[in-house]
Design a protein around this nucleic acid. Structure first.
Length: 156
DNA sequence: CGTGAGCGG
């Protein structure tokens, strides 16, 4: 029964959390209404919240708390080659936090997947995809100069 | 149980 999806949509339309910066009034899974020209904002001096620079890492939010990483990979694989897809889960509770990360092979694919999956439905929930923040994985940019003169920068 | 902001290891 696909009634569960309808319930989920009803919940989103009823709660309307502030996280949804985009109004998706088209709850009907048939009509897809693109948002009109929305004021980008920053006109005077209100930078607000600028997105992160393009990267192969994508930050997916709004996921269902029961959505596995495989589902993420499947959903994003339609737009490009997903190198790595993982849903963030808690260490102690072991349950999903509601968001995940998707890493594409190239930036162009990542952008395609981001625009293609941003505001789409996954497991009956609207997900949001945007570039993940650049963050040190193992070697913090504390010491740029090493004794060897080598730096651990070889990601993107 | 897991509805709901957020950037994993």
């Amino acid at each position: 029964m696909a009634l569960r999806a309808a319930v989920a949509r009803a919940t989103v339309a009823g709660a309307a959390p502030p996280s949804l910066r985009r109004m998706f009034s088209a709850a009907s899974a048939n009509s897809f209404v693109p948002p009109p020209i929305a004021a980008m904002g920053n006109g005077d001096g209100t930078p607000g919240r600028e997105q992160s620079p393009p990267s192969t890492n994508l930050f997916v939010s709004g996921l269902n708390k029961r959505t596995p990483s495989e589902k993420l990979r499947e959903a994003f694989s339609q737009f490009g080659r997903v190198v790595d897809a993982r849903v963030v889960t808690d260490r102690v509770s072991g349950y999903s936090k509601g968001f995940g990360f998707v890493r594409y092979a190239t930036i162009e694919e990542a952008e395609k997947g981001r625009v293609g999956m941003d505001g789409k439905f996954l497991d009956g929930w609207v997900i949001f995809a945007e570039y993940a923040r650049p963050r040190p994985e193992r070697t913090p940019p504390q010491n740029m100069s090493n004794s060897n003169g080598y730096n651990s920068y070889g990601r993107e």
